[in-house]
Simulated assay, not measured.
Amino acid sequence: MLLIVGTVPDETFPLTLGPALLDGADMIVNGVRVPVNRGTPALVGAVLAACQVLGPLPVETALVGDIGTGKGSRQLYEHLSRELPGMAPTTLAFHYLQPDVDWHNKVLFAVEEMEKRPVLVADAGFMYAAKMSGQAQSYDLFTPDVGELSFLADETAPHPFYTRGFILHQDNNVPDLIARAHEHRNGARHLLVKGSVDYMVADGEITGQVSKPAAEAMEAMGGTGDTLTGIVCALIESGKSIPKACRIAARVNRMAGVAARPTPASQVMDLILQIPKALARVMADPDYQ
């Protein structure tokens, strides 16, 4: 089972657990309808789109509303710290939650109490909390963009707000940022770095790059990093190794973006609709076997 943990930008959205389905441009969980525009709903939408090709994977969600106050995130943290030991996900993806080191550690302790340890994937706020707690190397995969990678690479920054300026300005020097994050043990075992070039990293070493196809307008479309994380999570749950899943996902996300013919006004759902066709093509390509 792939368990996706995250938040919805609606403070009235209750703690909601269960499988999700896509209905037009919305995600529905336990009868609650949420627009798929960006954030965790976009990640879930990408997973469900990938399942159209990979097959009906067992996918569950643990979601709560949070508009940045942290109230919903703390509620979800508390639930996970109590319930995870009795759950059995094979892949556990943490996404947008307000970074909280104490609660993060309680959740990680709960993971360690599970009968079988799942593959741990973290992005966005939970990845921040993992680095802030000094527990980054407990994770199997982080999926940072270059800005997030800069925070991972700054060994002195206790919070993303305090990432040092000279590091933030190294956007064109991603390999050095990767090496720095690994040197200071602030990266997971694997990284999928999202950007104009997507980098696949294992134990601090760059193992691959994907830069084509490219749609410039994707840079202005919010949520494309969330869809990339969703695709890689679905591939891992389907049985692909992490390096192979990262390489396939990077290619698929780019192909889906180009096929969506994006403009600055495009929505991430336009890309999600193209994921099944793009994934089928890449899975049939001998170079990605």
Rank of each mutant, 00 (worst) to 15 (best):
L3N: 11
G6L: 10
P9R: 12
D10I: 12
F13H: 04
P14S: 09
L17Y: 13
A20Y: 01
D23G: 14
M27F: 07
V32G: 12
R33V: 14
R33S: 11
N37Y: 15
G39Y: 13
A42V: 10
A42N: 06
L43H: 15
L48V: 04
A49F: 14
A50C: 06
C51E: 15
Q52G: 09
L54I: 08
L54Q: 08
V59F: 07
T61M: 09
A62E: 10
L63A: 08
V64L: 11
G72R: 11
G72A: 13
G72S: 10
S73L: 07
Q75T: 15
L76P: 05
H79R: 12
E83A: 00
G86P: 00
M87D: 01
A88T: 00
T91I: 11
L92A: 04
A93F: 15
H95Q: 07
Y96Q: 07
H104Y: 09
V107T: 01
V111W: 07
V111H: 03
M114R: 06
K131I: 00
G134L: 00
Q137M: 15
Q137C: 03
P144A: 01
P144Y: 06
V146E: 00
L152P: 03
L152H: 06
A157C: 10
H159S: 13
T163G: 12
G165Y: 13
Q170K: 07
Q170E: 07
N172I: 00
A179N: 00
E183A: 09
G187Q: 09
R189Q: 10
S196A: 09
S196Y: 08
S196M: 05
S196K: 09
Y199S: 03
Y199E: 02
V201C: 04
G204Q: 00
G208N: 01
V210L: 03
K212G: 04
K212I: 12
P213C: 12
A214Q: 13
M221I: 15
M221Y: 14
G222H: 09
T224P: 00
G225S: 02
D226N: 07
T227R: 03
L228M: 04
G230V: 02
V232P: 03
C233R: 11
S238Y: 14
G239C: 05
A245Q: 06
R247K: 05
R247I: 06
I248P: 07
I248W: 10
A250T: 05
A250G: 06
R254H: 08
R254C: 02
R254F: 10
V258P: 14
A260D: 13
A260S: 14
R261M: 15
D270G: 10
D270W: 09
Q274V: 13
Q274K: 10
Q289M: 00
Q289A: 00
